[in-house]
Design a protein around this nucleic acid. Structure first.
Lengths: 248, 248
DNA sequence: GATCATACTATTGTCGACAATTCTACCACG
DNA sequence: CGTGGTAGAATTGTCGACAATAGTATGATC
């Protein structure tokens, strides 16, 4: 079995790190609430808190040594990310993730990533294409080395590159949330391992579409969308077999 | 020119009212924060606050007669809805809406409503179909009577019905946000009036697709998506002409 | 007269305390 | 033994005050 903690740190670092392109930006000064939200976000993604568990304000007050005001702000932030659920006068609870959440998330993400690809293919820069190719190359090496950590990292980067190139900020932020939730789901069922070779071949095809000058944007869109929906199918199929075995 | 206030109350009532189907639910007890958020939401949609205007905590404290805690919670809620922007240590500002916001919003909404239609067509109930037909009928009467208020109301309801039928809660809530923003955009440029007849004809076609037993879901999806993107084109075209006239 | 430093004001950030509500354990009653 | 009610504890909701920061106006210096 893979080392889940190492896998986390690798992928989380890719997902959470500031984009290399925006290194010129000065770090924005944020308050306690944002810092706590970031800490809790990682803690939840890493599985420190179980689904359904209540995030008591008193406990966290002791843990972080701050008052409840910034804590409550952090809760709002986490709710916006879809990681917790705030029930008035009851408290804040880490979301339970079920297969239904995954079934709801993937088709939306598929549709929007497909849209992003369609929008991006007409305006993507040669520089970005080169970066995608580099990411794809690293994905290929990861497949050969059977290094799942590495594959996931570069796979995330690959998608991120063309999503950014779509030039639609609202689409980008919407997808960031969906992708983060998706990652969370994946790690909640970490026993599942994708068929890396198959995934890699599809991304090769996607790359070729981006590079070709006379690509039909509609076709590329369908290709990307289908690829994500297939990943869902594969995952659900695996899950079904697992649950059948478990239930017996 | 149409009476914008009356139009507001009509459309907002449709958009904001609890679904008739959920009348059995007991009203959820909400705190001051949620109430204030609701009030501010309507105030912003109605244009009481200008884009870029700061929502000072002190002023609103006097206006509502509450402390700053629930106010700050309301701000978080409004930020989640995309109506304001919170800049740390600076304050909360009503979002400036430009044509770019609209250009970003519509394609995403189009893609997701198309997806919703595709998902819905295979599982929609006869009861819901009847309701859609009723809404469509009322849309037709509104066109004949040139009653824009009425048309928008039933048009919103029509879309709401098949979105609900998709059976994907995440998709539903995501679209609710996008649709609310879209409505806000529309009212910010309230001089624009859609071609109701053309819109009505498209919806007739959509209705036929939903009713036919051998409809290609992919075709319906494209139809819905295209319809929304056409509305964007029409709007942008109008805006361009308006800006050219204004700029001269 | 322009620019930079500085004091002052206004606004947001954080805190601890009190109020309101919900949850829990216990007890009486059928 | 199960049910309903009540008192207590635990938790969230709200408040007013103080701290920290950003914005503004004033004045000194070149």
């Amino acid at each position: 079995m893979i080392d889940s903690v190492a896998l986390f740190s690798t992928i989380l670092s890719v997902l959470l790190m500031a984009l290399p392109d925006t290194l010129t930006e000065i770090k924005k000064p944020v308050g306690l609430g944002a810092q706590i939200a970031e800490t809790l976000k990682i803690a939840i993604l890493e599985g420190e808190f179980r689904g359904g568990e209540q995030l008591g304000e008193h406990d966290l007050q002791n843990r972080f040594g701050v008052s409840r005001s910034p804590l409550r702000e952090a809760f709002r932030e986490l709710e916006k990310l879809g990681l917790i659920e705030i029930i008035p006068r009851r408290g804040s609870f880490v979301k339970r993730i079920s297969r239904y959440d995954i079934e709801e998330n993937f088709p939306i993400r598929a549709a929007l990533e497909g849209l992003a690809a369609q929008l991006a293919v007409q305006k993507i820069s040669d520089e970005t294409l080169a970066r995608m190719e580099k990411a794809l190359d690293l994905m290929g090496r990861a497949v050969a080395a059977k290094n799942i950590n590495s594959y996931y990292s570069h796979h995330l980067r690959f998608h991120e590159l063309f999503i950014d190139s779509a030039g639609n900020e609202l689409l980008k932020t919407t997808l960031q949330n969906l992708r983060m939730q998706s990652l969370w789901h994946r790690f909640s069922y970490q026993y599942y391992q994708e068929d890396l070779e198959k995934s890699y071949r599809v991304h090769q095809e996607i790359m070729q579409c981006f590079q070709s000058r006379d690509t039909d944007p509609e076709y590329l869109r369908k290709l990307v969308e289908h690829h994500i929906n297939m990943a869902l199918d594969s995952f659900l199929h695996y899950l079904e077999a697992f649950e059948r075995k478990e239930g017996a």
